[in-house]
Each structure stands twice: as C-alpha cells, then as structure tokens.
Design a protein around this nucleic acid. Structure first.
Lengths: 353, 353
DNA sequence: ATTGTTATAGAAAACGTTTTCGTTCGCGCG
DNA sequence: CGCGCGAACGAAAACGTTTTCTATAACAAT
C-alpha cells in the first residue's frame, strides 16, 4: 500500500513533499498558527495522505511534553477500582493524544516502600500522574513527586486537600443517606463494617454512618463497628461476629461491596434470611453485587468518570506553570442503587396492623 | 540532597566526573565490555553515586529499543483477568527495565473496529505487544500488527497457533478433569453453561466437558448446554432455565466463575440448596468465588504467571530477527480448587447403606 | 521615502542517547 | 627493529522532533 521504505514517514518527508522546511511543518502541527493558510492546508493534506505520525520519543526528547500520563495503583480489594480507573483515564488520554502507563504497586504489608515509589516516579518521564487511594495520601510519595516537579491529580484524597488538584465524591454524605435509608426502613440496630485504617473512603463512609446515627439520637455501641479491610473475607468474618451479638443487628452496612458480599455469604452460612431477617447494604456498585443473591443495595460511585475528570484536569493544566498552586477540585455525584438486599426491619412486623 | 541543577543527571555528567567520553559510559552501561576494568568500575561507581538513570526517550530515539510493551485488552466479564494480566506483565517488565502500556479497548458490540485497533498499534512505538483473548484471535488485528512488524505474543490463542509465539493453559483438560470430578461424586445429569462464541476459553472448556461426558458414555441433551457470555447475569438466567428442566440436572458446570456465582444466586433465589441438592462448579478462581456461599469449587488459572511468561518470551526474543517465525509455546499448569459448592449427588443418598 | 512592525518561513541548535569510525597505544611476532 | 593487530577509548554522526534565532517580505505609520 505504502510505497515508502521500511520505517515510518518522518517530518522530513512531509517537508520535502510540501516544499517547506521541517520547522514549518512542526509549527503547523503543534499550533495551528505560524504559517500561511495556503501552506498550512498543503502540509495538513500531505500529513493526512502519507499517514504521518510524530515519533513520540523524538518529541519527548526535544520538547517538554512526553505525552505520557502515569497512574499509580495499590491493590486493595479486587480489581474493580483499577479497571474502572483505567477505563476512564484511557478514554480521556486517547481524546487528547496521550498515553497511559499504569503501575500496579505490589506490597506484602500495607504500604510499598518509599524507595520503590520514588524509583518509579523517576523511572519514566511522565508529564503527569494520577494517584488513587490509598496512595493519594502517601506523604513520602507526594514528596517524591513534588521533588521531581511532576504535576499530579489525586483521586479522593483524605488529607492535605490544598496540596494538589483533586477529584472526589462525597462518600460521607452518601453513607449518611444510605444509613438513613436503613433507618427509614425501620432498622434501629444498624452495624457497620469498616474499611482499612487511613483509607479515605473508609474514613468518610464511617463518618457518614456515625453522623446519621447521631442525627437520629442513637449512640453506637463499639461492638456494632467491626473492622474489615475491604476484602470480601473480612466482611464474612465480621458478619459472623456481628450475628453472634445479643441482640443481633437487623441491618449491616458494609464499607464496600466486596465486604457486603462476604456478609451475604456469612448470613447464608448461618441460615439468616436476607433481607427478611437481616438487611445488608454495601458501597461501590461493584459488579459482583448484581449477581449476588439477593442483589445488593449499594451506592454507585462513578469511578471511571472520576478518573476521566482527573486526567482532563491534568492535561488542561499542563500549560500552567503554577498548576499545583492553583488547586482545583471537582466533585462528582453518587447515586443510591436500591436492589433487594435491604428491606423493612423484622421488628416492624409486630407494629403492622 | 543532590547538588545538581534542576533536571536529572545525564550521561555527560557521568563522563565528565569519570574523566572519560560519553561513548565509553554508554558502552559500559549497555554491554559490560568495551572498556578496561579500571575504567568500568569507576564509571559504575559514579553512576551509582549520582543515581543516574538513562533517559528513555533519548535511548529510544537513538537505539532500536523503546523499552515499551503494550497489552491489548477487550473487556469481557469483570476486571479480574485484566488485573492479573497487568500484575504479571508489570512484574516481568520491571525486571527487564521495560514499561507497560495497557490499552483497554471499548466496544459497543462484541468487537472493536479494525481501524481503531490499527490506529492504536501505530500510535505508540511499542517494542512488542501482548494480546489477550479474545483479541488473540482477531485476524484484522494480527494483520495490522504484522504489517507494522511488531513482535507479539498471544495469550491463549484459539486458532492459527503457528502464527506467533504464545502462552497457554490446557483449558480443555482442566474442564475434563473438573467434569470427571463431578462424575466421581455421583453426578450423572451435569449441565454446562457456555461462554461467548469464538472465545478460546469457552470453546476449549466446553470441549473438555463434552469429552468427559463422552468418555463416560453419556450423550448430552442439547438442553443441558446453556448459552452464556461470561458475565454473571447470564449464569443466573441460564441456571433458572436449567432448574426448570425435568428432570433437573444435579450439577452445573459454569464456563467461568462469574457465571457460576450467578448460578449460585439463581439457586438461592429458587431455594435450591447448594451443594445438597445442586452442585455448582466454575472456572478461573476469581476472587468472588472465595466469598460466595458456599465457596466455589473451581479451577485455578495462573493468569499473572501466563502474562509474566509472555512478556519474558517477548523480551527474550527481541534480539531475534526471525522471532515470529520461530514459534515458541509455553504451557502453564492449572490446579483444581475444591471448595464447598460441589458435593455428592443427591440421588446417591438412596444408594447409601 | 524612510522607518518600524508584523507575519511568514528557513537554518540551525538542542535534547540524551547509541553506534560507527578512527586514533592511539602496547605488544607479540617475523 | 619494524610491522601488524587487537584493545581501549574518543570524536562525531545519527535518531526525529521542537524551538530559538534570523532573514525576508509585506505593509502601516510617520
């Protein structure tokens, strides 16, 4: 099809064909201006015809931009979050001609070594970085990135909000609403399964739960709050403990869907009917919640959209020298997803006519 | 800490510090030879001390290599596969100093447009590509990649095995074993939920199921084979249909775990006790299978290891001009995971002493 | 008419490597 | 003693861009 040699067509080929210098071609391509309209359209036409694609490496080497955005990810729970972030970020990158490099950090214990993170930050020449929780709050990492002077946007940071632009969702308000919805179904003994300490989502969601309970004048016994880690197994274990309580809670609010699904499994094991005797609700709208039995009532979190917004923010800020200083913030909406794992509290039956 | 200017230390800094030319430094770094032992150790020491990292772009521009490997992924079911592939591939890349670019292809219907794929292949300068199913069998894509002369390794290809190196697992044998295990538990009416047409894993697993049934002299009624698409919901629907059969199957083998979990949900909905009245088994060892109730009997597929092997194969073949021609193949082992969703067939009870 | 200003466009430097091609030097061999 | 040869290393070209600097032309303002 192409009569050219072996490797791709370069800017020189375009310049020769159009009878102009490579500088002109470059100008036309990067900023529309800087060339006469006649020359511009000729160059553009030839670029199209020859299927010219700028060499990323050369471009990176020469100019400031690398057209590369990195996402740092630490696995915590399943891959749903990762997948969605990646989907949204890829979308935004493609739109702007950028590429996405996702690094999944492995760590035996909770946190990866600061050196590993710093090494990664320096290893590739990113134009910008997206940080996902709980990395959004890793101060070593933040320092390393700032040291390298790389612009970054955080997803759902839990602290130091003024430190960088960020994208978030009101986890606390959503959890409050979710709790209140249980209350309105007649539940009074509502237990909560917490996520890992320090994780933003965990902290905020618990705060929302507590706020709702306080609003209704209930003081929450510490036994009602079980510790989890966002993995399904912890939800299972926590629920077994919660069900052994006397009196047992009539509803369990799990900090994320994976734990909620674990809770469902524990209830099934102990033959506690859901939602007849126990209501279970989660948070995230993870895919497993649709095909659990009963299907899970949860909160939809627009993860892909958040990632998309973060990348747009990042790319939009590239011209800006003082990007980091001028902190922007973008808040996205949640949505309650009512399925069948939550229903009226059993004690309510006695009150029925 | 570092007394240097703003941006990183370059090969020139090393050369100056060591009192040699940059050519020498480059030689020392790339092939250990080409310099005297005294000079070599001096250079190495300075590199270490100054924390020098070669600039990827410059290296890419100059040499042949770009130190970049791409993974093409089309979502089918959840993100478990993607996450694991990415984890394994990242590991292998990091070991060899490469970077990984994951592209998640979106598509409304089954397959993405050939143009979109071709554009992606050309867009970034990959040294090599990893293809995951079902993209492993997309002939348009394969042609585009070969046209661009990019080495590639396929994960679990379903056809044209001689076309490129590939990594696989014996899905068929595993499915056969899984089916036989159900047989040995006394099950005779074993139904199967198939994956999407054309998907290698679906095809092979079904073949294994059929082979096992044939081995035991059972002719499988077409009603026992339900059509699914690897998403959980399809397993749910298929199971409702299967349970309505007369006589109903005593065991259901779902082509993947997500569908198996859907099957569990359908059983729960219809109050069919698992595993007492119905056994359900899956395939993949996805995370949701651990926290379902009952925990799912399945087959562990070493996805991360397969991806790791694929990347190693790719990088190992880079020196090799005729990489594609000299087809290698690497087979990894599966492992049956026995949990509690499968047990002796109910009819067996009558045969008990 | 002269000067200043602006738009257009080319020449060339710069980016940080790898690699090719020499040059120098020491040394074994005739 | 002279010659050739290999090892060690430096000079410089090349990779494909972006960007700065400069030159020219066109045109407005004096």
């Amino acid at each position: 099809m192409d009569k050219s040699g072996d490797k791709g067509v370069s800017i020189k080929d375009i310049a020769r064909e159009a009878g102009v210098s490579i500088a002109t071609v470059s100008r036309v391509l990067n900023r529309g201006e800087g060339a006469g309209p006649e020359v511009r359209s000729r160059v553009l036409e030839i670029v199209e015809r020859l299927g010219y694609r700028p060499n990323v490496s050369a471009r990176a080497l020469s100019g400031r931009r690398n057209y590369l955005i990195g996402v740092l990810f630490l696995r915590l729970g399943g891959y749903h979050y990762l997948g969605e972030v990646q989907l949204g970020a890829t979308r935004a990158c493609r739109r702007a001609g950028y590429h996405l490099l996702v690094e999944q950090i492995e760590s035996a214990d909770g946190m990866p070594s600061p050196e590993a993170l710093a090494a990664f930050v320096r290893s590739a020449a990113f134009d910008g970085l997206i940080l996902t929780p709980p990395l959004s709050d890793d101060s070593h990492l933040l320092a390393a990135i700032e040291d390298a002077a790389i612009p970054y946007v955080r997803l759902a940071p839990n602290s130091d909000e003024a430190r960088s632009p960020y994208v978030w969702m009101d986890d606390q308000e959503a959890a409050r609403e979710q709790t209140l919805a249980l209350w309105d179904l007649g539940h009074r003994r509502i237990a909560y399964i917490d996520g890992p300490a320090g994780h933003r989502a965990a902290v905020r969601r618990k705060a929302g739960y507590l706020a709702a309970m306080a609003e209704r004048g209930v003081s929450v016994p510490s036994a009602w709050i079980a510790q989890g880690d966002f993995f399904g197994m912890s939800g299972f274990n926590a629920t077994e403990a919660l069900l052994a309580l006397e009196p047992a809670p009539t509803a369990i609010f799990a900090g994320n869907d994976e734990m909620a699904i674990g809770a469902l499994a524990a209830a099934a094991k102990h033959r506690v009917a859901v939602p007849e005797r126990l209501s279970v609700v989660g948070f995230d709208n993870a895919p497993g919640g649709e095909t659990s039995w009963p299907p899970l009532t949860t909160v939809h979190q627009p993860i892909a959209e958040m990632a998309e917004a973060a990348v747009d923010m990042l790319i939009g800020g590239f011209g800006d020298r003082r990007f980091r200083a001028r902190v922007q913030e973008r808040k996205l909406d949640y949505r309650l997803v009512r399925r069948q794992s939550a229903a009226r509290a059993p004690s309510d039956i006695h009150l029925a006519p």
